[in-house]
Amino acid sequence: MGAEHTSVPRWGSEWPAPDPSARTVLLVGFGARGCAITAAWAADVPAGRPVEVLAADDADESVLAVLTARIAGARVGWRLMLAGPEDDVLAARAVALRAGVLDAEIRCAVTSTDRKRVYCPHCRATTTTTAPVAGETPCEGCARRLHVYAHVSRRAGAYLGFMADAEEVA
């Protein structure tokens, strides 16, 4: 999914199709556009394969808790498909990866990359922002101006931010 040499995900221009080798599938859609995609996927999963569809406004704690519970009970052959804005998809993918789901078992469709979560290593808070990569956002934890770096943690589902003006002399 990502370009091979960078941690920043590059989502394909076309949405993936369900893995034909899947035996059971969990589809999670975020927002109206994400849920439209999961509906299309549900129709494409071969007959006889159990499909569960979850719909959520965003990747909040309750939907992530359901995802965690489904993974805990899943058997090999299970696949996860995520659709929605990048920050929600990354947050859900992070939960799955931390629970031991393989990249090969996850397919994603990203409907927009406007919003991102930015991790501040100075105070460890995570800020949601619409700033672009190489742009700036204030940290919600320590109020420092953060430079949004082209570096993404798969486990946190967040971009790295660092103090933009650390080298300025006050």
Partner: peptide
């Protein structure tokens, strides 16, 4: 930051380094 990079692929850890890719 080890704390941020933990769990990344080797290639991802080096993502921001210019020229090497």
């Amino acid at each position: 930051s080890m704390g941020f990079d933990v769990g990344m692929r080797f290639l991802e850890v080096h993502g921001p380094v210019p020229r090497v890719h």
